[in-house]
Amino acid sequence: MNLFRLAGDMTHLFSIIVLLLKIHATKSCSGISLKTQELYVIVFLTRYLDLFTRFVSLYNTVMKIVFIGTSFAIVWYMRYHKVVKQTYNKDEDTFKHYFLLLPCFVLALLLHNEFTTMDVLWTFSLYLEAVAILPQLVLLQQSRNIDNLTGNYVFFLGAYRGLYVLNWIYRYFLQDHRARWIPWISGLVQTALYADFFYYYILSWKKHEKLKLPA
C-alpha cells in the first residue's frame, strides 16, 4: 500500500459519499446517470468475486463491502425511493449502456491473465469501469445546469483513477517492477475520458462560473 493508492481509494470513497449525500440530503438525483451507477454495481460485483475466497487485508475487505453496499444503495435510491425516483430524468440519460457490456466481456475473453472465471470477470470489470462513466458524461453534456455536487462527484471519481496511475508508476519503479498491462491500460483509458471534463471543471472553477460542458 502506498500513499497514492490510499489517496486514490479515499478519493473514490469520498466521491461516492458526496453522491449519496447529494441524493439523501436533496432527495434528488437530477443530473445523475442511473446507467453509470448500474454499471458500477456490475463493476464491483465482478471485481470483488474473491471477497469471500481470498483475504488480502482487513482494509481491502472492508472497502470492497463499502463499495458494493454504497453502489447498491445509490441504484436503490434512484430506482425505488418514492421521492428520489421522480427526480430521475430518464430522457436525458440516453446512453445505451448495455452496449458496453458485450464488447468488454468479449475483450476480457480475449485479453486476460489466466483463463479462469474469476480472472476473466475481474478483467471484464476493469474494462467496464474504464467506460462506465460515459453515460454520466453524456448526460452532463446534455443537461443545462450541472449542480456543484454532481460536478464534484465526477471530479473526485476521475481524480481517484488519476491517483491510481501515480500508484502504478510508484509500484513499478519503486516496488515490484512488474508490468500490469491490463489494469494500466484500462485505467489510462478511464482517466483520459475525464480529461476534457477536468479541463472545463477547472476552467469553471477558476472563472467562478457555473460548470458548462460544450455539447
Partner: peptide, 10 residues
C-alpha cells in the same frame, strides 16, 4: 501467485 498480487488493489 503472480497474478493474485495484481488483485490486491481495489
Amino acid at each position: 501467485a503472480e497474478e493474485h498480487a495484481a488483485k490486491d488493489e481495489l
